[in-house]
Design a protein around this nucleic acid. Sequence first.
DNA 1: TTGTAAATAAGAATGATTCCGATTTAACGC
DNA 2: GCGTTAAATCGGAATCATTCTTATTTACAA
Lengths: 135, 135
Amino acid sequence: MNLQRALEELKEKGHKYTDKREDLLRFFYEQNGYRTARDVKIMMEDKYPGISFDTIYRNLHLFVDLNLLEVTELEGEKHFRMKCESKHHHHFICLDCGKTKEIHTCPMQQVSGELQDYAIENHKFEIYGKCPACK
Amino acid sequence: MNLQRALEELKEKGHKYTDKREDLLRFFYEQNGYRTARDVKIMMEDKYPGISFDTIYRNLHLFVDLNLLEVTELEGEKHFRMKCESKHHHHFICLDCGKTKEIHTCPMQQVSGELQDYAIENHKFEIYGKCPACK
DNA sequence: TTGTAAATAAGAATGATTCCGATTTAACGC
DNA sequence: GCGTTAAATCGGAATCATTCTTATTTACAA
């Protein structure tokens, strides 16, 4: 899903187009890593001085609901990244720069047998460390 | 490791014995699930009215450092549980009651090949849902 | 028993996130 | 284009988890 398609999706679901939303989405589409609300604010303040955290969080959560972004919790802070289009996978996350690498191993098939009477809702498999550039 | 052994460990590392520390550890040893600092405070207030969050957090972190407790981040809050003694494994976590079930599948062996030039520091594999009792 | 460093209490401070009331704006129909 | 209206935004206060600070208390070794 590219930026144009994402913006159409927004409209189809009855949300309004705003410059801020386009720029926020573009920010995530232009990188391959997790970013915090604070990162977003710093980036947006160039063009929109005085943009409020309320706007940023509201939109981040909207985009997560619309499945345009995904979120993970790291060091007491929510981190967001563009939603991957490729088939189900997990991520290595660089603790320095936030960049990610896809991991195409998922242990859930082997696990299901161990959880017969449990209602599985979701799962998280993440690997943390330093990417080659930050090492 | 049982409660007595944990308390000895405390002393060996040069920390003092206090009733609060014993009760805090016992609380975790008596259950099999993740609990928040708030949960601990509520439990402790019966016996120690006016116990401060500072004391609770300080001790929780001390016990994590001493490898007596482990911690995970869930819904914007840190959750703690007794450190498991059995060999490396992961957990199913009930989103209602916090109780856990050990998962004896770890995908890290298969993954290492995908991360040749990366410095892996740690990883997290957790499954979330409802346990049989809460379902 | 006493000295001292560790532990604790109480409450202020911090940092991320959410809420609220007032204002602005996108989009729709005319 | 113009007016209407619900959605979006702003600015700042509020909230919630967590940490810090300062003064006081306590465990325990000598």
